[in-house]
Simulated scan of single mutants.
Amino acid sequence: MQITAELDNQHLEKLQALEKALRKNTSELISLAIDEIYQRQAPSLLSEGQKAYQIMQQTGFIGSMAGDGSLSENYKDVLDWSDKT
């Protein structure tokens, strides 16, 4: 995608300083800025279900294990209950 933008002198100077300091071109800096803003705003863009899922992933609440998909039917036979006796 090609973007045309008008910058005032203050922002142009900042852009040029960032290009030199970070050794990135304008396209790379725009991508970095978008990623940064998106990361900060992402929680407000998510639905309640997506927020809950993200929290569960971050806290390690969501996990998985290999199986045939019938654990809800045969969990007593599959799981190790030796520490419960």
Rank of each mutant, 00 (worst) to 15 (best):
residue 14 K to I: 08
residue 59 T to P: 05
residue 51 K to V: 08
residue 42 A to E: 10
residue 26 T to I: 03
residue 40 R to W: 06
residue 16 Q to N: 15
residue 36 E to F: 13
residue 29 L to H: 04
residue 31 S to G: 10
residue 38 Y to I: 12
residue 29 L to T: 04
residue 38 Y to V: 13
residue 52 A to C: 04
residue 14 K to Y: 06
residue 13 E to W: 07
residue 56 M to D: 14
residue 41 Q to L: 15
residue 33 A to Q: 04
residue 20 K to Y: 03
residue 53 Y to M: 13
residue 62 I to L: 15
residue 50 Q to M: 08
residue 32 L to V: 02
residue 16 Q to A: 12
residue 13 E to C: 04
residue 32 L to D: 13
residue 12 L to H: 11
residue 56 M to T: 02
residue 23 R to D: 04
residue 55 I to F: 11
residue 48 E to N: 11
residue 21 A to D: 13
residue 58 Q to N: 13
residue 38 Y to D: 14
residue 10 Q to M: 06
residue 19 E to N: 05
residue 41 Q to Y: 08
residue 44 S to M: 04
residue 44 S to K: 15
residue 50 Q to H: 08
residue 23 R to P: 05
residue 53 Y to C: 06
residue 36 E to S: 13
residue 28 E to W: 02
residue 22 L to I: 00
residue 16 Q to V: 05
residue 28 E to F: 01
residue 14 K to P: 03
residue 58 Q to M: 09
residue 33 A to E: 06
residue 59 T to N: 13
residue 12 L to V: 01
residue 13 E to Q: 14
residue 29 L to F: 05
residue 50 Q to F: 02
residue 50 Q to N: 07
residue 46 L to S: 04
residue 35 D to C: 10
residue 26 T to C: 09
residue 62 I to D: 07
residue 20 K to D: 03
residue 15 L to Y: 03
residue 35 D to A: 12
residue 55 I to E: 14
residue 15 L to H: 01
residue 12 L to A: 14
residue 43 P to H: 06
residue 41 Q to N: 11
residue 29 L to S: 02
residue 57 Q to N: 11
residue 60 G to V: 09
residue 13 E to A: 15
residue 64 S to P: 00
residue 29 L to N: 00
residue 42 A to R: 10
residue 23 R to L: 01
residue 40 R to N: 11
residue 27 S to H: 02
residue 29 L to A: 02
residue 57 Q to H: 10
